[in-house]
Amino acid sequence: MKPAKFEYHAPGSVDEAIALLGRYEGDAKVLAGGQSLVPLLNFRLSRPAALIDLNRIPSLAYIRADDGVVRFGAMTRQRTIEFSDVVRQRLPLLSEATRLVGHLPIRTRGTIGGSIAHADPSAEYPAILAALDGEVVVKGPKGERTVKARELFQTYLTTSLESDEVLTEVRLPAIDAGAGTAFEEFSRRHGDFAIIGIAAVIAGDGASCSMARLATAGAGPIPVRLRAAEEILERDGLGDAPIAAAAARAAELVDPDSDIHASSAYRKHLTGVLTERAVRRAMAKRGR
């Protein structure tokens, strides 16, 4: 388990990183926290000609909140997000989910930009980007553009980023103070990738639901926004029957693959179970 030979570059700026990516014409990989990429290198499942290391670009690590949006520099560590007061106040869903990302050493190295650019559909951050309809900023030789969650994730470990583009920022709309949020996840062991994870945001008073946001981790090749289930809650409210109906709808909306840890049928079942649990827990946290 030693990587094949590669060149290593540690540029001091994003522009320099983009230039290096261009020079390798698609045969270079961007190194952020390295928690997924380095094992792939060691198994020789990924054999890039070069690694472009973003860890020497200090301007890529920040958390800023303004105009109802929280912006994260791509190299912001998960551990920083876990303990950020801004995140706890504006994005409690992200705080909760971050505690489910791997283990302490993984979160200490792992970054928000790396997790999203890696696009593992079982990971927590892509699900949150989908649930909150967030966007990412990517920079390439032709300049900067923003990409919405639904345009970003294409399939397993694949995004719409060009090979000479760098994801520089993640933007998540702040959650209304009165809304409740929950991230329900089931994994085989603490810290493992989700078998199924459900991100939920619920707003509204009492049994009424002014807004529901639901998205999955682990339920297919990309995070799935469960819009039809959200609509049931927004239309019929938060009684037992509509919640059960929304959960059943959620299970119908996903088409997960089977793997050695969970069959497709079990994942569909879990999608329903965890949707109901996430909605109920998010409801209970409203107005706090």
């Binding site: 094992p39 198994f43 085989r188 062991r189 603490h190 810290g191 493992d192 050695i260 840890h261």
Partner: peptide
């Protein structure tokens, strides 16, 4: 072998 690494072969950790 489908469980060729500790990503897929799951010994208990202290949490379990």
């Amino acid at each position: 072998l489908a469980t060729g690494s500790l990503m897929d072969y799951l010994p208990p950790t202290a949490w379990e």
